[in-house]
Amino acid sequence: MSKDVLILAESVEDKLALISSELLGIGRKLADDLGGDLIAVILGSEGTKELSKGLISLGADKVIVGESDIFDGYTNSFYLEGIDAAVRESSPHTFLVANTSVGRDIAPRIAFRHNASYAHDCTELSYEDEKLCAIRPVWGGSAISHVKSKTENLSIASLRPKALPMADIIEGRTGDLVELNISIESGETLMSFLEAKKVQSEGVRLEDAEIVVSGGRGLGGAENFSHLEKLGKVLKAAVGASRAAVDAGWVPTQMQVGQTGKIVSPNLYIAVGISGAMQHMVGAGPSKNIVAINTDADAPIFQRARYGIVGDYKKVLPALTEKFEELLQS
């Protein structure tokens, strides 16, 4: 059986996605454990080839590039066939994707098709007797499961963003570039890509922010997010939200932090009017310092916080914002 590890790399605005670097880090380790090669596959429109050097310097021994108009914009049908072709061509031991809107949309279908095992949203990966083992938080993060692949075939896993360190860049590393043989015509599909509507966030991106201020149901209304925005401006922070605030229609879904939102890892996370449900903490948990402001002293968020104030945010936030402003000016 093959000892190679294949990863699905992705690009964001013509650059390699950070999560791909996390995949290459663990992928390299796993390939070394097995004594095989690390292969990266990347699909995209013309110019995608340019990213292969970066993939090799981050640890890939071989890069499979699928460059085609049909990969200009994501559709499940085309990507599925493209990635299936790469899996068949490289027949790896293990195939890793990131738990992103693309990775999680492809991996289960590939796994079912190949009779492979599939572990979703893993935070750690290793081998035991050459079988893929994964740690997978389940029940919204309330429980942690360890699973082990039982198949003699392919094992597939999706990796949770920010769970593992990024690969180091090694200058001068060499590797092979292979072009993917694909013979899909755009006419053959039952599906077509129309457009992507990107929501530009003002200021710092939530995922990259060093400080995040986040609001929940406790804010009581859309208009009250202005308190958070004010605080955010002073701290040069990104503003996030709980799902309750998103479901109430107060803020757009791109601001959601959590299991089904974004995973953030700032130095400081200020949670305002957020109870700290497990599903929310999946996204906020990687933060280095959590500060919670909540009227309920028993709210679970305080179990994860370094500092807390029990009280109405309407009294706390203006004074906090003012003091920060003063401190940051001096």
Binding site: V147, K150, A305
Partner: peptide, 18 residues
């Protein structure tokens, strides 16, 4: 195709300073 080998609850040491 996967075998569950372990299941437990994560522990968080709540040492929040109020």
């Amino acid at each position: 195709t996967l075998e569950l080998t372990k299941l437990y609850q994560p522990v968080f040491t709540g040492n929040c300073e109020f």
